[in-house]
C-alpha cells in the first residue's frame, strides 16, 4: 500500500471518491498487448528488459488483445496492416488506451512523402491517447509517454464523457 502501510495502530476508515480509486487501480496495472511492428518494437523490447524496466510500472506484455488494457503501436503501419490494427483495437475490452510510439505511427515518419503503401499516422484508423515522438524513441521517452498516459487516466471521470472518439 505504500504510504499508508502499517501507519495506524487501530482499525480505520479510508474515505476517497470512487473515481480516484478506480483510476488509481487502472493506471497502476496497465497490461499491454505485444504489438511490435518494426524498429520501434526493438526499443519497446529493450524497455521491457532489465535495464529500463517496464514491469515496475505494472506493465506486462500479454499475447492476446482480450486480456490487455493498452496497445502500444510501435512501428510503421502499412495499408495492408491497418485493417488488422483496427480489428485488434476493436477486440480489446473497455477501458482501453492507445500509445502511438515513434514517428512512423504518429504521422508516417520518414516515409511520409513517397511511401505509397504507408499509412500516414495510425490515428487515421484508431483513436490515439498519447503520441511519443522519436525515430526510434529512446526507452526513457517511452517511459515518459507511459507516465503521461497514467496522468491522463488519473484525471479521468467515469461519469462524464470528455474525450470524443473520432
Amino acid at each position: 500500500m505504500g504510504l499508508l502501510d502499517k501507519e495506524f495502530s487501530e482499525n480505520n476508515i479510508l474515505i476517497t471518491t470512487t473515481e480516484n480509486l478506480f483510476n488509481w487501480a487502472r493506471l497502476s496495472s496497465l497490461w499491454q498487448v505485444g504489438f511490435g511492428l518494426a524498429c520501434c518494437a526493438i526499443e519497446m523490447m529493450a524497455t521491457s528488459a532489465s535495464h529500463y524496466d517496464f514491469d515496475r510500472f505494472g506493465v506486462i506484455p500479454r499475447p492476446s488483445p482480450r486480456q490487455s488494457d493498452v496497445i502500444i503501436v510501435s512501428g510503421t503501419v502499412t495499408l495492408k496492416m491497418a485493417l488488422r490494427v483496427k480489428r485488434l483495437y476493436e477486440q480489446m475490452p473497455d477501458p482501453k488506451y492507445v500509445i502511438s510510439m515513434g514517428s512512423c505511427s504518429n504521422c508516417g515518419g520518414p516515409y511520409w512523402e513517397h511511401g505509397y503503401h504507408v499509412l500516414k499516422g495510425v490515428d487515421r484508423v484508431i483513436p490515439v491517447d498519447v503520441y511519443v515522438p522519436g525515430c526510434p524513441p529512446r526507452p526513457e521517452a517511452l517511459l515518459e509517454g507511459l507516465l503521461k498516459l497514467q496522468e491522463k487516466i488519473r484525471y479521468e471521470s467515469i461519469t462524464k464523457k470528455n474525450n470524443e472518439i473520432v
Partner: peptide
C-alpha cells in the same frame, strides 16, 4: 508477407545518394 512494405526502392529513386543511407538503416 508484405505487412511492413515501406517502399524503400521507390524512395531510393527520388532521394540523393547520401540521403538513402538512413533508409537503408531501417
Amino acid at each position: 508477407i508484405g505487412y511492413l512494405h515501406r517502399c524503400f526502392e521507390k524512395h531510393c529513386e527520388v532521394m540523393t545518394y547520401p540521403q538513402v543511407i538512413p533508409y537503408t538503416d531501417r
